[in-house]
């Protein structure tokens, strides 16, 4: 049995504004095991991004605890919706950004980043500017920028939502295979059911805001090696239907 790398217990997050207070996340508990690919799915605006910000410790929970079992200083890698590559930096310099900021830039880490670029087909584009490469490639660069800091836990916030459907499927395959090969524990947040089923081992379905866990699905599609193959599998439709029902069902079925 593998250890939990992340454990959230009874987490609540309240935001205050001039006119109102908003409960974004309420009494939420979840756990992620080492090497697991977890998808968190919920209706738009239900507080998914808040959840990732909490895990990344960008914001503090109002109540509850978030435990991360890692001895690294920068244990969490966070990939945002858009690539946010800096247009004045070359692909290579963009990838090194995280290492520079965390003051981990040395010969070995630089080589690691450079090897990742080579390995995932960007070796010839190191000296290119982001504007000179395609949207799918930019997303790959963004992932490698996150991986370069060698995090124990990878957070993905709808990383494909900015891409058109065709590219989206390709990049999803891409990213999935990179994550699997680098053997990273991953939490993906999305509102796209098919995307969640095509990559995840475990799917948490969240309710409307305030986000609570409605149900947890275990996906047994590991025999299919790529997201695309999973999408074509027989079981895919069954999972889709179940999750769709759960997602759109009344919240009081809890």
């Amino acid at each position: 049995m593998k250890n939990d790398i992340l454990k959230m217990q009874g987490v609540t997050k309240v935001f205050y504004t001039k006119t109102a207070q908003t409960v974004a996340v309420e009494n939420l508990s979840l756990a992620v095991k080492e090497g697991e690919f977890v998808a968190i799915i919920g209706p738009s605006g239900c507080g998914k991004t808040t959840l990732l910000s909490l895990i990344a410790k960008l914001i503090e929970p109002t109540t509850g605890s978030i435990l991360l079992s890692s001895n690294k200083k920068h244990a969490v890698g966070y990939m945002l919706q858009q690539d946010h590559l800096f247009p004045w930096r070359t692909v290579e310099k963009n990838v090194l950004l995280g290492l520079e900021v965390t003051k981990n830039l040395n010969y070995e880490t630089k080589k690691y980043a450079s090897d990742l670029l080579e390995k995932y087909g960007l070796g010839d584009f190191k000296k290119h500017l982001p504007s000179q490469i395609s949207g799918g490639m930019r997303q790959r660069v963004a992932l490698i920028r996150t991986l370069a800091t060698n995090p124990d836990l990878l957070l993905l916030d709808e990383p494909f939502s900015a891409l058109d459907f065709q590219t989206r499927l390709e990049v999803c395959d891409d990213v999935y295979s990179i994550i699997r090969r680098e053997n990273k524990t991953t939490v993906l947040v999305t509102h796209d059911i098919s995307e969640a089923i095509s990559v995840a081992d475990k799917i948490y379905v969240l309710s409307k805001r305030p986000a609570k866990v409605k149900k947890v699905f275990q996906c047994n599609l590991q025999e299919y090696t790529t997201p695309l193959k999973r999408r074509e599998s027989e079981e895919f439709g069954k999972y889709f239907e179940e999750i769709y029902k759960c997602l759109n069902g009344a919240d009081d079925e809890l």
Binding site: H74, Y78, L80, H84, E100
Partner: peptide, 29 residues
């Protein structure tokens, strides 16, 4: 300066000086 780019810097736990010199200043050239 794009707030989401600042968020990106913060995901790497960047401090104010790093955010300024690596992002805000170059973006404003």
């Amino acid at each position: 300066t794009e707030p989401s780019k600042i968020l990106l810097m913060r995901t790497f736990k960047a401090n104010k000086a790093q955010i300024f010199f690596k992002l805000v200043f170059p973006a404003n050239i």
